[in-house]
Simulated assay, not measured.
Amino acid sequence: MKNNSRTNIVLLALTYWLYFGQLGVLVPYLGIFLDGRGFSSADIGKLFAIITLARIIGPSLWASIADKTGQALLVLRLGCFLTVVSFATVFLFDGFWGLTLSFGLMMMFWTAVLPQLEVITMQSVTKTAVSYGQVRLWGSIGFIVLTVGVGKALDSYSTDTPVYVSMGILTALFVSSLLIVHPGATKPATDQSDNFGQLARHKTFLIFLLSASLLQFSFGAYYGFFALYMRDLHYSGQQTGLLIALGVLAEIGIFLLARRLIARCGVWWLLFVCMTLTACRWAILAGWAEYGIAVIVSQLIHALSFGLTHATSVHFIYHFFPAQFHSRAQALYISIAFGLGGASGNYIAGQLWHQGTNAIQTFMVAAISALAGALVLFLINRKKMDLSFTQ
C-alpha cells in the first residue's frame, strides 16, 4: 500500500512537472510567437486577455462537475485530452481570431486540470510525511527546464518553436493523467450548494479574492511582455530563459519551507509581505531593468510573488472549505484571481505597452496594483483569517 502511495505521489509530481513545464513554454514565449506572426503589442494584450477570460468560466464549470460527481480524476483526464485536441488547431490558423479561438479553447479545457490536481494532491499527501510543497516543487523544476530549453532554442530556431514544444508537452500530460490513481473517493456534493454559497460570500474569503485578483492583475505586464522587454534591452533568448528560470528556481526552496512558514507566520502576514515585495519587484523592473543584477533581484522575489502566495492560498482554501467543496473553491479562486484579475491585467498592459515605449509606466501600474492587493488585506481581521479554517 505504501509503495502504491509512493508511486502515485511520483506520478503527481510528474504531472506537475508537465503542467507547469507547459506554462514555462507558453507564458514567457507566447508573446514572442505572436510577435513573429506580426501581431502588435495591443493585439498581443487583447489575445492574452481573451484567452485568460476562459479561466473565469472554465474552472467553475469543471469543478462543479467534479464536486457533484465525486470524479475529480475523470475530469482531470478529460481536461487533458480536450486540451491536446484543441491546441492542435493552432497549426491550422495564422490570423488573430483563428489563433484566439485555438488558444481560448485550449485554455477553457486546460482549466479543468489544475484545480483537480491540487485537490487530488492535497488528499494524497494527507497523513503522509510528504508535504504539498514537496510535490508542487516539481512543477517549478519542469518550468525551469523547459523555459531555459525553449529560450535557448529561440536563439537558433523560429518563433514557432514554443507551439511545437507545447504540443509534445500537452500530449505527455494527457498520458501521465491516465496513470494517476485517486487516493480515495470523495463523496459527491448533493444538496449543500447553499452552504458553499455562504462560505464563498464570507467577508474573509471575498477580500482574499480581491487581494489575489489585484496581485494577478499586476502580473499582466510580466506574463505578456517580459520576454519582449528583455529582447528590447538586448538580452539574448538564452539569458531571458535563464532569468525566468531563476525566478522559478527560487520557488523550489520556498515550497520546501512553505508549510513551516505558514504554521509559524500565518496566512495573513505571509500574503501581505509577499504582495508588498511583489510591488517592489515591478518597480525594480520599471526603473533598473537595463542592469542585470537588478533583474536578478526582481526574479528572486518571484519565489514570494508566486510560490509562497500560491502555496499559502491553496492551504487557506483547503482549510476554509469542507472537502466536498474543495474543487469548486479552488476553481473559484482560479476563475476570479487568475481569470478576471489576470485577463484585466493582460488587457491593460497591452494597451499601455505601445511596442515597449511605455514599459516603465506599465510596470509601475503593476507595482501599484500589487501594493493595493497587500493593503486591502487590512480589511480582514488578521487573526480571523489565520484561524478561519478551524471554525
Rank of each mutant, 00 (worst) to 15 (best):
N3Q: 13
N3Y: 12
N3K: 15
R6W: 12
I9P: 00
A13Q: 06
L14Y: 03
Y16W: 02
L18A: 11
L23Q: 10
L26N: 11
Y29I: 04
G31D: 09
F33K: 08
G38M: 02
S40M: 07
A42F: 14
D43L: 03
K46I: 15
F48N: 03
L53P: 08
R55K: 13
I56T: 07
I57L: 13
P59E: 07
S60W: 07
S60F: 08
W62T: 01
R77D: 02
R77G: 09
F87H: 11
F91V: 05
T100H: 04
G104N: 09
W110T: 14
W110H: 14
T111Y: 12
A112E: 07
T121S: 10
K127V: 12
T128V: 03
G133D: 07
V135Y: 04
R136S: 09
S140C: 00
K152I: 12
A153R: 03
S156L: 12
S158H: 02
D160M: 14
D160V: 09
G168F: 04
I169W: 01
L170R: 04
A172Q: 02
L178H: 06
L178N: 14
V181L: 12
T186A: 13
K187R: 13
T190M: 11
S193R: 11
S193F: 10
S193N: 15
R201T: 10
H202D: 13
T204K: 09
I207W: 02
L209C: 04
S211H: 06
S211F: 01
S211I: 10
S213F: 03
L214Q: 06
L215E: 01
Q216A: 14
Y223S: 10
F225G: 00
F226A: 08
F226Q: 10
M230D: 01
R231Y: 02
D232N: 06
L233F: 04
Y235F: 05
T240W: 02
L249K: 09
R260A: 13
C265F: 13
C265P: 11
C265M: 14
W268P: 14
L270H: 04
T278D: 06
Y291R: 15
Y291D: 05
I293N: 08
A294T: 07
V295E: 00
V295A: 07
V297T: 13
L300A: 12
A303Q: 06
A303Y: 01
L304F: 03
L304G: 01
F306N: 10
F306M: 05
G307R: 01
G307T: 07
L308F: 03
L308C: 05
V314L: 06
V314G: 06
Y318T: 14
Y318W: 14
H319V: 08
F320A: 03
P322W: 08
S327H: 06
A337P: 05
L340Y: 02
G341V: 04
G342E: 01
S344F: 11
A349S: 15
A349D: 10
Q351G: 15
W353D: 05
G356T: 05
T357E: 11
N358K: 09
T362W: 00
A370V: 03
L377H: 09
L379Y: 04
D386G: 07
T390I: 14
